[in-house]
Design a protein around this nucleic acid. Sequence first.
RNA 1: GUGCCCGUAGCUCAGCUGGAUAGAGUAUUUGACUACGAAUCAAAGGGUCGCAGGUUCGAAUCCUGCCGGGCACGCCA
Length: 557
Amino acid sequence: MSILTSKKEQLSLEIVKALRQAQAEGQLNFTELPDFTVEVPREKEHGDFATNVAMLLSKENHKAPREIAQIITEHFVNVQDWLEKIEIAGAGFINFYLGTAWLYQVLPQVINEDERYGCSNFGGGQRVQVEFVSANPTGLLHMGNARGAALGDTLCNVLAAAGYEVTREFYINDAGNQIENFGKSLEARYLQLLGHDVVFPEEGYHGADLIETVKNIIAEVGDKYLGVEATLRREFLIQKALQEKLSNIKKDLARFGVEYDVWFSEQSLHDSGAIAQTIQELQQKGLVYEKEGALWLKTTEFGEEKDEVLLRSNGLATYFAADIAYHQNKFKRGFEKVINIWGADHHGHVARMKGAMQALGYAPEDLHVILMQLVRLLRGGEIARMSKRSGQYITLSELIDEVGRDAARFFFVMRSPDSHLDFDLDLAKTETADNPVYYVQYAHARINSILLASTEEPVASREVDFTLLKETEEIALIRKIAEFPDEIVGAAVNYEPHHLTHYAHELASLFHSFYNSCRVLTDDAALRQARLFLVDAARITLRNVLLLLGVNAPEKM
RNA sequence: GUGCCCGUAGCUCAGCUGGAUAGAGUAUUUGACUACGAAUCAAAGGGUCGCAGGUUCGAAUCCUGCCGGGCACGCCA
């Protein structure tokens, strides 16, 4: 548990004790303990921690909140040794001042834990599976995929740091209509490249990357599939092309710092009979019926507006049916929490997937879907709409070439998934201080050069007098460092990795302020040692948060 | 028409399980390098939190309605 959390809990216990004592003495009335909070106030003038408990008891007791706060504080006993001051303020807040001694404990802790600093066992090893990107393997990765990759990978890092056991998974959509369409497109390109005048399918994949793929295939097998029966020829081209596309996707994601534990094939669900089995299971529960030659799932029983088709009248399973089988498979593998990161254009799919999970006997809330609003690409101030069909989109690979992995990952995670992301290519291309990632990285590089310039012999932390760190900037920096483990837990439980980019920026900012007002390599040896410890703790924390974001922590820039 | 997301400083966005004077970056203006990296710091101005009601001791945050923008409503995936 972090020092911050333990202080909060300590205060909560004291508050409860005071409440019960006041109740026993007949000064306060409550049937059950109020659900109060102990928080770090936004304004540091409001103390180290504050509670709203008095306001919550106001109504039941027919007393003003400040009056209740007075009663509560009078019942605090034997706290003088660690509580410097209690104050009633504002509308009835109770503010607690703990002094600074407790804060200094965090510095040796950071140095000790080093790359583990910030990690906790909050998740208790709960098994979580995160499925993200899952791009169609028929083309290249676009900005939406890139956002999903940065978001998903960072979320996984955060969850792992918070003590969850995380599995990263990519669902390969290698079945269904778009694969057939893919096959037709490949075949047309194959024939065209070998000098045959064939019409390219209108709904086909027009991207130039497909031509490259087919050229590669021709380089390998030549024209020997010209004479092969069309179904077999398409099948061959599909397998070959999928292989290449997937390997490229893997390569691009790896360049982006994203590595998966599992690549899960949709086709395997068809081949293994898993889909048929899932449908049968739903049938046995009486949730399936036939209409107009198709098989329908009664999703209306789970709050949907209409029922959904599982098996089309041509006998083929829908994407929905395959996805139900896939998600059932996830739960069968023992994941306690299943998280999907989808584009907002899939939002209609969320409720019915949850409904289907409920139908199969799983708790719908164990499936959590993060919807990302779409990425809009700006070029020259104009919105460039991405289109797979036209092939006119910027790929992840190109983005990394242009703006670099660090900037791209930081930018994608910086915004809440709910927010539309305008990615200004021109701006991102300019490597200036406009880019917040440089600001954070600069702090790290700066610390590193201080440590390089120092000729200090290492000393044990117990020999360092941390109480010398009493400047406002020093206390603020320590406080922010102390918040890191709680920051990670907060980002993990709410699935909000974007908080970490803000945290990184704040931490860097506090360091820069400190740097400008406090000289580290001062002649005062005791102060110098204390500050070197502080700076090193800041370095470790900055590096760790950047690591979670998948961003490099450079020693110089 | 129905559903989901968004609307906060000139611009890009945080803050949303209700809490104290609504924050940051950027842009603008003004200061700070003969000491550890000026890719930095310090300071100023900039707001009907889309609008209108409601709940509450207290609302940017919750509820209802409306306005504006995006997305989705297929036996596609």
